[in-house]
Amino acid sequence: MKFRAILLASATAVAFPAFAADPDLLVFDWAGFEDEGLLQSYIEKHGTGPTYAFFADDDEAYQKMASGFKADVAHPCSQMVSKYRDAGLIEPWDVNRIPEFGNIEQRFLNSSIFKDDTGVWYIPTDYAYTAIAYNKDEVPEADVSTLQVFTNPAYAGRVSLPDNTDDVWALALLATGVTDWTEVSDEQFQAAADWLRTAHENVRAYWADPSEMAQLMASGEVLVSWSWNDGVTLLREEGFPIGFQRTPSEGASNWFCGYVNFKDAPGSEDKAYDFINSWLDHRSAQGLLDGFGYAHSNNAAMAEIAPEALAEAFADPIEGTFLTQTPMNNEMRERMLEEFEKIKAGF
């Protein structure tokens, strides 16, 4: 269901709700997250899920909200929260109304952008890694022990990268020795941009959503991709010989996403809290794992899932070097956006 929904959302505008249910709560979200496995307590209480409008990427979502689109809550990834705060679009959550708040992994709240003396502005919910997906029948494990596989001439025309500024820059920075993107020098930026230009020469296609990446790999067009968990999950379900290297020598990218609460929202504030409490319900951790291959921010809920089940979905904890996609300087992110567009255009 998730992947069909992603394709639909990628091909349609988001000016209207794409999935209509409870009219008192409009959730602006990534396609697929209307999954009932995440909404059990909400549905039990209200008889149906919220109404959804979908976006294809974080930048599109922010631009839509900044242009006047109205929703009650939205699901940005961590690096975007500062833009919503700076624009005055969101308000703090009342964590006294969120019983599971104390069980959220604290490293996901370790930023004054998410939590400060004015309140809690962000509720982290889901996380995983961007790492190397590869065809195990055709790509030796030794080749994917390093991120330099993306610039390896042996894979010219057989590589796919996400059409996503944050993920491609996380890759390029890691590949050039940077693990903290909150402090990137001009020299580091240029080294990463040069690396991306080299990798671009190997790229067959930039994937817009996990289903597109999975199709490219299943067809044999692509042998190596910088991927999220869900594309790998889909390929495994189809019996494809997929490997997922989360510990290359240079490191992997750790991302996390969650929900913000909009000011002057059109719907029910009470139902917004019912929604976030449904997400943090222990049952939702299993729903998230089954539907997406992602890990849940609620440590108590995660502790109820067998370690072998987490490992099977590549959602188990790993050790190594990570670039965690925490908020960065907005000027730097705009610079990355502009440079990435030039690279894709061949400049």
Score class of each variant (00 low, 15 high):
35 D>W: 03
43 I>G: 04
44 E>K: 13
46 H>K: 04
46 H>Q: 06
47 G>S: 08
48 T>S: 13
48 T>C: 07
48 T>G: 13
50 P>L: 15
51 T>D: 12
51 T>Q: 11
53 A>N: 05
53 A>Q: 09
53 A>I: 11
53 A>C: 11
54 F>G: 02
55 F>M: 13
56 A>W: 12
56 A>E: 12
56 A>Y: 14
58 D>R: 06
58 D>K: 04
59 D>K: 15
59 D>S: 13
60 E>A: 14
60 E>P: 00
61 A>S: 10
61 A>K: 09
62 Y>I: 05
63 Q>E: 07
64 K>P: 05
64 K>M: 14
66 A>H: 09
66 A>K: 15
67 S>Y: 02
68 G>L: 08
69 F>H: 06
70 K>T: 13
71 A>N: 07
72 D>V: 02
72 D>R: 02
72 D>T: 08
73 V>A: 04
73 V>H: 01
74 A>F: 00
75 H>S: 07
76 P>V: 03
76 P>G: 14
77 C>H: 01
77 C>E: 15
78 S>I: 00
79 Q>I: 06
80 M>Y: 01
80 M>P: 01
81 V>R: 00
81 V>L: 05
81 V>E: 03
82 S>C: 07
82 S>G: 08
82 S>M: 06
83 K>D: 10
85 R>H: 05
85 R>V: 09
86 D>M: 11
87 A>L: 13
87 A>P: 00
87 A>V: 05
88 G>H: 13
89 L>N: 09
90 I>D: 04
90 I>N: 05
91 E>L: 13
91 E>H: 07
93 W>F: 15
93 W>G: 02
94 D>I: 08
94 D>A: 12
95 V>T: 10
95 V>K: 13
97 R>V: 03
97 R>P: 02
97 R>I: 03
98 I>E: 15
98 I>G: 11
98 I>N: 04
99 P>I: 14
100 E>Y: 00
100 E>I: 00
101 F>W: 08
101 F>C: 12
102 G>E: 08
105 E>I: 00
105 E>P: 00
106 Q>P: 09
106 Q>R: 15
106 Q>K: 10
107 R>H: 11
107 R>F: 11
108 F>Q: 06
108 F>S: 02
108 F>Y: 07
109 L>V: 08
109 L>I: 10
109 L>E: 03
109 L>K: 04
111 S>F: 02
111 S>T: 04
112 S>P: 00
112 S>H: 15
112 S>C: 06
112 S>T: 12
114 F>P: 00
114 F>R: 00
114 F>W: 01
115 K>W: 07
116 D>L: 07
117 D>C: 10
118 T>R: 14
118 T>N: 09
119 G>Y: 09
119 G>L: 11
119 G>T: 07
120 V>D: 03
121 W>R: 01
122 Y>W: 10
123 I>A: 01
123 I>R: 01
124 P>G: 15
124 P>K: 04
125 T>R: 04
125 T>D: 12
126 D>C: 09
127 Y>F: 11
128 A>D: 03
128 A>S: 11
129 Y>R: 06
132 I>D: 12
133 A>N: 05
133 A>K: 00
133 A>H: 00
133 A>L: 03
134 Y>G: 12
